[in-house]
Design a protein around this nucleic acid. Structure first.
Lengths: 143, 143
DNA sequence: GGTCAATAGTTGATATATCAACTATATTTT
DNA sequence: AAAATATAGTTGATATATCAACTATTGACC
């Protein structure tokens, strides 16, 4: 049987895990009490103030149930406001609190450092190719 | 603020999720009652019969606590045997049952198909580069 | 206008991830 | 050999992932 470490899923999996752990550790060490997943949700709302939970789920590739629960924690932590959407009562309208904006932007700086460190000695010309290949794989897996 | 979809973690995250969901769906549709994570553990033991739980955790980049719990399910499902290690009573000795060997090998075939489909239209010459970049990122994040 | 289907989100059950605290055993040190 | 340290694994608490069943609301169709 073919060896584990030859399979692509294995390498992507490991890369994702190591990067995620690395990023989370650095956020924590900088003194922030937030998970990467929570931050990604805040960031997506910050960039797209009209987003529904559904929209967030789509761009982050998360299940709606996960979004619901993470958002509950973000509201509880004082980073996010939830209210009924004025035009569609099925939806909720999300907005960052000042505290939420602050942590989103501050953690973003750490995220930039993380990326720079993670990409050390990676040929920047190849980076675009890397992204294209990953996007092609995403496309193949979701069509 | 820089857009979400420019960040590398985001693309790797999304690629991992889409591939994982795609792979899991295909395993399920083929009629197998096993998760990808469980299969990866079976596969690592199949390839390395002397592995400790610790060893498995290291190559799969999983926490020992996760390994313990997944292995509990694998034993319960009849795929795996656990007994005390003859030379070190702290360790457990793991071995696949015939049923475990069967599913490991059968799901492997699906995994090969999954990979082929995921890599459709990805230049095979670039594939080696992709793996090298991912390995470099792993290295940067774990040193 | 009433019925049916689609959409937005929630909740329950179970699997996995993470960290910290813990037990048991083995190894090292002195 | 006793004490200190290291290693292997477990358990509790909490966060996230996944799927299915569910409620509420909106939109489409007739």
């Amino acid at each position: 049987m073919e060896k584990l470490n030859n399979t692509l899923l294995y390498t992507i999996d490991k890369c994702f895990r190591s990067y995620h752990q690395f990023a989370q550790k650095n956020v924590k060490q900088a003194g922030y009490e937030i998970t990467i997943d929570q931050w990604l949700i805040l960031k997506s709302i910050h960039e797209n103030p009209d987003f529904s939970q559904n929209d967030i789920g789509k761009i982050l590739f998360k299940d709606n149930a996960s979004i619901t629960r993470i958002i509950q924690l973000l509201v509880k932590a004082g980073y996010l406001n939830r209210k009924e959407h004025p035009e569609d009562r099925r939806r909720v309208q999300l907005s960052l609190t000042p505290k939420g904006i602050k942590i989103t932007e501050e953690v973003h700086l750490i995220a930039l450092e993380n990326r720079a460190n993670a990409l050390k000695d990676v040929n920047p010309e190849h980076l675009q190719e890397l992204k294209q290949m990953l996007d092609q794989i995403i496309k193949n897996c979701t069509e």
